[in-house]
Amino acid sequence: MYTTLILVQTLNGLQFGIILFLIAAGLTLVFGVMDFINLAHGVQYMIGAYFAFAFTSWTGSFGLGLLLALPAALVFGLLLEALVFRHLYDKDHLEQVLATFGIILFLNQGVKVVWGSSPLFVPVPEFLQGSIVLFEGFFYPTYRLAIIGAGLGVAALLYVLVNYTRAGMLVRAGATNAKMVSALGVDIRRLFMIVFGFGAMLAGFAGAMVAPILSVEPGMGDNLLILAFVVIVIGGIGSIRGAFLAALIIGLVDTLGRTFAGDVLRLFMDPGAASTVGRAVAPMLIYILMAAVLFFRPAGLFPVKR
């Protein structure tokens, strides 16, 4: 019984980590390549979920909805880039915080105006409903497995794109030294735009994928934004590989911590105190981890090679 619980929570942690990776991948590139603090990255995730909801109810099929939500999220990201972010790259961090915070306020309210403030639900597509028997007596929801699969697929695709294409090479070069890349004659503005749009689309993809298992509501991206920052700091700013590994670590630590912190502490203290302390410590774990990483290895666990 207990082993099953551990297995289920490990898979849940993995699935959470995958979602975090999809959000963090864009954020780490935007941060690493453009040195741009984009607090509005979380709303891209929210927008993706809303697009998935809108297109799913329009077409009646989640697959089609997802297919339409992706380009919509991309266009939305590019639009934001052209309207606002493009003019912020040269500003200092504080002005970026100010402007992107303003965008969070605007878009969180904007989705309320368009779709109302009550949570919306997207049905799980029929062919992914129910559970799969992984082995004797062990079930797991098919859709969550599909998220893990899709996320791993995207991670593999990103790996190929970043490591084996010309655009990927420029992104890697940009993360190491953006000024030098620009000096070598690369149109850095266009590179920024591509990175930005792609990052927005990935975050939107994450939002669309979780729409059937979470409620779609205004502000749903705000807390994930902070978690994505935790991921990219632990992984090393600008490193996709780091973001992937750190996202899995954070997903597992957070999920397993919340389930088992009390049980682990019970080995050292009496049960009542253990469950109280466990409840307090569990949500803090990833931030303690983040502070420790920043203190001992400020460049992150898997930094970009310079």
């Binding site: 606002v84 003019h87 912020l88 500003k91 002005e95 970026q96 100010l98 402007a99 915070f101 303003g102 965008i103 969070i104 306020l105 605007f106 878009l107 309210q109």
Partner: peptide, 9 residues
Amino acid sequence: GPLLVLVAL
């Protein structure tokens, strides 16, 4: 929100 963006810009 847009006011904050304008101030920043």
